[in-house]
């Protein structure tokens, strides 16, 4: 009981995830700045932003549903934190592994997007509503290729759990190379999940003035930002757990490798963010359905065939 509480609240739950999310968001912003030839923010910038938002006045719009409005950011953060508990960090098994945790993880990661949509919807502001509708449209486009790309390696490994996949790929490390197309699809599609350039349409500062979060201020916005930062960590960890399942012996070495892997994924994500511009919503939908989904489908078929050949 106590141990479970420790896992939820301190490590690897809220406290560690929150701290790592702040570090992550700093590295992301710094890389972004360096790639634009700027100096970039100072190392404590995300922490300062977070504290400042906590200390600001929280305004709830007159026509918004007060309870839902307050509940949604907390819900988004809770879903992300819960998802983190199922990701292996220092060894090849997560804290609470079970057959099918990969699927549960993917569903838990869908919840924040739904929260963003409802947040926009319940804010009763025009900008927020457009942002909300875009968030949902986007959800239906990137979610399919993302799920298929993450499930393809699982198909080959014949296991729906992260630890089962790790066990399979550590005995057949060369098969990881087959999953490279799925890796590319996952990295691109998760930009949509994380609402980052080129798929940051729901927020689109320059056209929607902040999109779904337009009416959020102060503490509630701080929680939302925290949820987004944590989501970045969780998605990067998930991609690294699926496509780079290397765990050396020993907790400390495993932890170090975990940090290294997630940082590599973050670098790729930051690179994508800084070399691209925002696309329009119909371009985004077309791109996801015309290119990403078929690529993921081919990967799945290839993996199934390969499994038949190997069996």
């Amino acid at each position: 009981m106590l141990l479970a509480l420790f896992h939820i609240l301190i490590f690897p739950g809220m406290l560690f995830l929150g701290a790592y999310a702040l570090v992550f968001s700093f590295i992301d912003r710094k890389l972004y700045a360096r790639l634009q030839n700027r100096r970039g923010p100072r190392w404590y910038q995300p922490l300062a932003d977070f504290l400042k938002l906590l200390g600001k006045e929280t305004i709830i719009p007159e026509h918004a549903d007060k309870r839902v409005f307050v509940f949604l950011p907390v819900m988004a953060l809770a879903a992300v934190t819960a998802a983190y508990l199922y990701i292996p960090i220092w060894s090849s098994t997560s804290l609470y592994p079970f057959e099918g945790d990969l699927i549960v993880l993917l569903y838990l990661l869908t919840l924040p997007t739904l929260c963003f949509f409802l947040a926009g919807w319940y804010s009763t502001s025009v900008y927020a509503t457009i942002g909300a509708v875009r968030a949902l449209t986007q959800l239906f486009s990137y979610e399919v290729p993302l799920f298929m790309a993450l499930l393809a390696p699982a198909l080959l490994a014949d296991s729906w759990s992260l630890s089962g996949m790790t066990a399979y790929y550590s005995t057949h490390p060369l098969y990881l190379l087959i999953n490279i197309p799925a890796f590319l699809v996952a990295v691109i599609a998760c930009q949509g999940k994380l609402e980052r350039v080129p798929f940051d349409l729901p927020e689109a500062e320059t056209e929607l003035a902040g999109g779904t979060f337009v009416e959020y201020s102060g503490r509630l916005y701080a929680i939302f930002r925290m949820a987004i930062d944590c989501e970045l960590v969780v998605v990067a960890s998930l991609i690294s757990a699926v496509f780079l399942p290397f765990y050396p012996a020993g907790a400390w070495a495993g932890f170090g490798v975990y940090i290294l892997k997630t940082l590599v994924i973050l670098f790729i994500l930051a690179l994508l963010r800084s070399i691209m511009a925002r696309v329009r919503i119909e371009q985004m939908v077309a791109f996801c359905w015309k290119y990403l989904t078929p690529l993921a489908l081919i990967q799945i078929i290839a993996n199934l065939l390969l499994k038949g050949v190997l069996a």
Partner: peptide, 21 residues
Amino acid sequence: TPRYDLERFGILQQGTPRHSD
């Protein structure tokens, strides 16, 4: 713009008055 790089001081431009100081 990147030339003056206001993010050094933590300054970000926001689209909505609800987020800005």
